[in-house]
Design a protein around this nucleic acid. Structure first.
Length: 349
DNA sequence: AACAAAATCAACCGCGAAAAA
DNA sequence: ATTTTTCGCGGTTGATTTTGT
């Protein structure tokens, strides 16, 4: 596999690595590390570019590389992360221990992409392919009357809105995943992954709030830095036009080892018809809402967010946990409540 | 068995960002 | 402040392997 070996104009070797070259590289890095890739080949006695050495090490020779087929769980994670991050292979790889960005990229291009296409999804947007949707009115027009076409246009409009909302919810799901994962990490030592996750979660939240002007973010009281709030709890409310069904695609969500639970509760309120989706920890049930800031300095200040443009009864406290009707077309809201009971403390060891 | 087409994946390339000079 | 070097990323290539006819 790979390319036939050859040398470039500088006489440096290119193409597939020989076992001898691999051995030299591994032995050198085990002994001296890889502080400078550009200087490494000469010092290791390799007739290669530093870039080639780095690639060979990171994608193949590194001791923590996981080989073999991707598991179902890994596949799910890649699909999920790709729906949020797009072709950010290194970012995706950082969530899959032992897998390289190159490997994930190859797996995506050769398997997952095709799988999505076969299932009728656009591999870039992860949404149902619009060419199929848009062709429907034309087919209907051939078979039926103008009225049917108009009806279909309305459906398309609704579908587009739902797509946008689903994308927002996907981000929320990923946000929760990040927070749950962070919480499951050690709380007693400095953990770069936890910090990275918090940063990613914060930027994700910003991206959601940029898109949705009605988004209400409820930070815990007396927080100077919003990013810190991920360690303590955060409440988010997003108005949506329809109840949102989002079965948890990540196994972590239902894992009893992870001290969090996710709940989706749909509610149709009398009159205003406010629906909400709640992602929460522990005691937060749809029928009995507790303050998200039970550990915060001033619990009395906590409240479920009021959603702009909808009834103030978006409060899940008032919600029924059973109904899933659409509330007669009235505006709805997606209410995500993400909370950590024990604040995470990162200490430098 | 022989050939062609498709799939796989290691490695290369070019670019932009960060770091060093 | 500017230029050069280094690093890392995402896209692409092409030799090899697998599958289909």
């Amino acid at each position: 596999m790979g390319r036939s070996s050859c040398c470039d104009e500088n006489g440096l070797k290119k193409g597939p690595w020989t076992p001898e070259e691999d051995q030299k590289l591994v032995q050198y890095i085990q002994k001296h590390g890889h502080a400078s890739w550009s200087a490494l080949p000469k010092q290791a006695g390799l007739n290669r570019y530093g870039k080639s050495c780095r690639l060979r090490w990171t994608n193949y020779l590194r001791p923590d590389i996981k080989r073999g087929k991707f598991s179902q769980e890994e596949e799910q994670t890649i699909l999920h992360l790709h729906s949020i991050l797009g072709n950010k292979w290194s970012a995706i790889a950082s969530h899959l221990p032992g897998r390289t960005d190159n490997e994930i990229k190859n797996f995506w291009n050769t398997h997952l992409k095709k799988k999505l296409i076969q299932m009728g999804f656009d591999p870039m947007t992860h949404q149902p392919r619009t060419d199929l949707v848009s062709s429907l009115p034309y087919l209907l027009a051939l078979a039926n009357m103008t009225k049917l076409i108009e009806h279909q246009y309305l459906l398309d409009e609704q579908a587009l809105r739902l797509q946008a909302e689903t994308a927002q919810l996907a981000k929320l799901q990923y946000l929760e995943y990040l927070l749950q994962y962070t919480a499951s990490l050690s709380t007693n030592s400095y953990d770069q992954t936890a910090i990275t996750n918090n940063m990613e979660a914060f930027s994700l939240l910003n991206s959601i709030s940029n898109v949705n002007e009605n988004l209400v973010i409820d930070y815990p009281p007396q927080m100077d830095n919003p990013a810190d709030s991920f360690s303590h709890g955060i409440a988010i409310a997003i108005p949506t036009s329809q109840p949102l069904h989002h079965p948890c695609s990540l196994p972590h969500f239902s894992d009893p080892q992870v001290p969090f639970s996710s709940q989706t509760s749909l509610n149709s309120e009398t009159g205003q018809g406010t629906n909400f989706t709640m992602l929460s920890q522990g005691d937060h049930t749809a029928s009995g809402y507790d303050s998200p800031w039970v550990n915060s300095p001033s619990p009395s200040s906590s409240r479920p967010p009021t959603v702009a443009g909808t009834s103030s009864t978006s409060n899940p406290e008032e919600a029924s946990s059973t109904t899933s009707s659409y509330g007669g077309g009235a505006a709805s809201s997606c209410w995500a409540d993400i909370f950590f009971e024990e604040p995470i403390v990162h200490e430098f060891s």
